[in-house]
Computed example of a mutant assay.
Amino acid sequence: MSDVFVVGADLIKFGRYPDKTPAQLGAEAALLALDDSGLTVHDLEVVYAASTYNAASMIAQQVLKQIGQTGVPCVNVSNACASGATAFREAYIGIRSGMYDVALAFGVEKNPKGLLGGPPGPGPSPEGLFGSATTPAMFAEAGVVHAEAYGTTIEQFAQVAVKNHHHATMNPKAMYQIETPLETVLASEMIAWPLTKLMCSANVDGAAAVVLVSERKARELGLARAVRIRGSALASDPYQPRNPALLDADTVTRLAVGKAYEMAGLGPEDLNLVELHDCFATAEILHYENLGLCGQGMAGQLIDSGQTALGGRIPVNVSGGLLSKGHPIGATGVANIVEIVQHLRGEAGARQVEGARIGLAHVLGFSAVAGVCGVHILEKA
């Protein structure tokens, strides 16, 4: 089986695009990634597209109508917030199997405004019965459980937002590029205690794309800017004898990252940077422990230490993360990979993690009743 490499990676600036269609946004990102790879649409052998709200409309085929229809297979993926990571993994599998040499994987989303989530299911609403089905309340509850168990404070959760908003000031493609001091984060509108508005991810439109190739093709193109995929894992919730309306963001992430570390032959001590799914500030704290970046119950101390900030031992979400860069659901998983690729190439500008050779991209998709997690470990070629 062939090793698989990323040779093209880019994204559009995240924001709001009322005058553009999802296909137009996806096409722009796809062309950016193709330009970055030195390839054209005529080199593509397969396309994998991710979207939560637009996948049913055959978004891959719509994008090819914008950039060139060559008759290649198109696969459209919808897997909640892990949609982009799923499309990337399917492209990886297609190339690793030997079926293809060149694949495009992209994610695109035009998010609706307001709280995100699907329509209510049949029967009584879990809202008010089992806590809450809205994602801010679900992750607020998870944060409170962590605080009760380990003494994590609201200030420690808020420091995640302070850090990630600072990182975003160095990312020209982030939605929000503003400093938010601790007192500003704590004073912003309370959404679901302990989560204030500035501790919740930014609801935006966006698109990101990558070009993956086989080792044969990568050597033909040259390995100077190529990034090797060392580990790729996708997991869903295992059965647990507990109320399915109670959020468990931990188990599915630990399952996926364990598989990715095993496949890569690496551990958390080998990582130089991480892009993780900070849909809410509480989530980043939980995932420090889930990904093995610190011991159980030590995440509050880790954020206080500054080790997850740019210049620290293990920088996390140097892009600004979902909190500040933005969270266009179907594009997020691919965007996290783009960020890692740019650092491993030494092309991340003012926010560059110096000497980065190995990075991890993590994304978690959740509803009130189901979860999915994608983890990818990438290495400088």
Rank of each mutant, 00 (worst) to 15 (best):
G107S: 02
Q342M: 13
L182T: 11
L276K: 04
R254E: 12
L378Y: 00
M263P: 02
R242D: 15
A281E: 03
L31M: 15
L322Y: 00
V334Y: 03
A142Q: 04
V7M: 07
E339D: 15
T282C: 12
Q342G: 07
F157E: 03
E289H: 12
G306M: 10
G306I: 11
E45Y: 09
S83Y: 04
V6I: 14
S367R: 00
H165S: 06
A381M: 02
V274Q: 07
L246A: 11
P194M: 11
A33V: 06
A161Q: 08
V316L: 11
L271H: 00
T153L: 05
A281W: 10
R96E: 13
L223Q: 12
P328Q: 02
S83H: 10
M170Q: 13
A368T: 13
G346F: 08
Q301W: 09
Y92D: 04
D101R: 09
A348M: 04
W193N: 13
S188L: 13
C74N: 10
A133V: 13
S324D: 04
T184W: 03
R219G: 05
M99T: 15
R16S: 10
E284F: 05
M199V: 13
A158Q: 03
S78H: 05
D19W: 10
V334D: 00
D278T: 11
T282N: 07
G349W: 02
K380S: 09
S97Y: 02
P124Y: 11
V334C: 09
L31E: 13
N54A: 15
S2L: 05
R16Q: 11
L221Y: 06
Q296W: 15
S214Q: 03
L234E: 05
G98L: 04
E269V: 12
V41E: 01
M58G: 14
